[in-house]
Design a protein around this nucleic acid. Structure first.
Lengths: 234, 234
DNA sequence: TGTATTTTTCTTGTCGACAAAAAGTCGGCA
DNA sequence: TGCCGACTTTTTGTCGACAAGAAAAATACA
């Protein structure tokens, strides 16, 4: 780490949040890969803070499941649990459906505009073939929808799931081609229209199909047979 | 607080968990009512610990939303958000359904036994007219079902929702009569049978009805018209 | 040379103290 | 008497240091 994070003095109380958010981002963006050890002393030097606020930030990350702390031993970035993937897909699909449904039912003044902003950003990322941008703008788009649904419990769980999804997708982002993302743009537009029309049933159906698409795509990445010798004639 | 919590020396690392769990229980059981201030110094004395581990426990509680911390100012037990109750009911109902469904689909060796243990405890609480016991054993029963469903995301959210529900119910526990709880015993038994038979559809329907019951009951408590002068002839 | 045991080192968990921020208090002034 | 500003007190956020536990290294022994 060659970057000296903050040289100027922090405002009292802002330290923990800064550390928390910075580490959170680095974990989700795989800048800190799963399994990598977290050294408190090192972070203390990096942020020019005592170990106490560092520790509080780590406790918050641990509560979110982003890091795992072995008592009295090391603390590491949580591994991606491939065995738990079916559970993950199930919950993700349910949240896609529920949030889109609720958005159609509950959206109010300004929600649509917020959703459109994110959709626009997603479109730009797609046309730029900016794969990492697609992953993160797609997340923002769906969170905007969730927020329009006005249920903080769903928003919170969905955010966690989408961020966990970002970690997984980052592993395979080189596998992205540009045909599926273009399809997503269209699906997003359909969902927005259904939400505007307050067509709950259609919103649900579209979200469900959309979720199946994404889950299917992730599945195909993971199970992709990358053996170069597979087609070898013997 | 006349209770001296722990006089003997703690095992290293066990301190935070102890404080966390103790406070968590006291918050959920309304022993620490919503809005009551949390004094770090006081807790430090009570648990015979430095303020550092106390603080880490508080950070965890804050991450769960059980306490609210005003930066540089006070930290208090979170208020029960009555305005957010519709969201709460919606999420609670969904989790009732999803967990019972999954339990019917995924339960394995030993799960049923664990569920029956909790159901037995609930029955005992009901026949003893132990209202507080009913509230907590009912929670344990449904968490046992959720665990049989094998989805950690749902288990986690459901646990949070049920515990938040315990706080609310405690406020009205004096309103409990013994007719509804007896009905719950029957409904629980039906749900168990559906799970054993792996009848997903029936499990879903029963859970849905059960959730409606409970939500309706809480609603009736909250909106109960307790004005003594209401029937006064004028 | 391989294994068991002790020693060292490193990291984490805990502590007491200090500093900053806010609330509360007191006195002055209109 | 009522309001405003400076001072005091209280509580939180941060710090540097120490102690315990575990891993790694070094040593002793078969």
């Amino acid at each position: 780490m060659d970057e000296t994070e903050k040289l100027q003095t922090h405002r009292r109380g802002s330290g923990v949040s800064t550390v928390y958010e910075t580490l959170r981002n680095e974990i989700i963006e795989l800048k800190l890969p799963p399994g990598s050890p977290i050294d408190e002393q090192q972070l203390s030097d990096r942020f020019s803070l005592s170990r106490t606020p560092i520790r509080e930030a780590l406790v918050r990350l641990a509560a979110e499941g982003l890091i795992s702390t072995l008592t009295n031993r090391a603390t590491i970035v949580s591994n991606i649990d491939f065995l738990g993937l079916p559970e993950f897909f199930d919950a993700l699909t349910l949240m896609y459906r529920v949030t889109t449904r609720l958005a159609a039912a509950n959206h109010a003044e300004g929600d649509i505009a917020a959703i459109l902003v994110q959709q626009k950003a997603f479109e730009v990322a797609v046309s730029n073939r900016d794969v990492l941008g697609m992953i993160s703008t797609n997340r923002d788009f769906h969170i905007a929808i969730a927020q329009a649904g006005r249920n903080r419990y769903y928003v919170e769980l969905f955010t966690r799931l989408l961020d966990e999804g970002r970690r997984i997708l980052r592993l395979y982002y080189s596998s992205f081609n540009d045909v599926l993302p273009r399809q997503y743009v269209g699906e997003h537009e359909e969902m927005i229209q259904a939400i505007i029309n307050r067509d709950v049933t259609l919103a649900d159906r579209l979200a469900s199909a959309h979720a199946d698409q994404i889950v299917g795509q992730i599945r195909s990445y993971i199970t992709a047979d990358s053996r170069q010798t597979a087609r070898l004639a013997l």
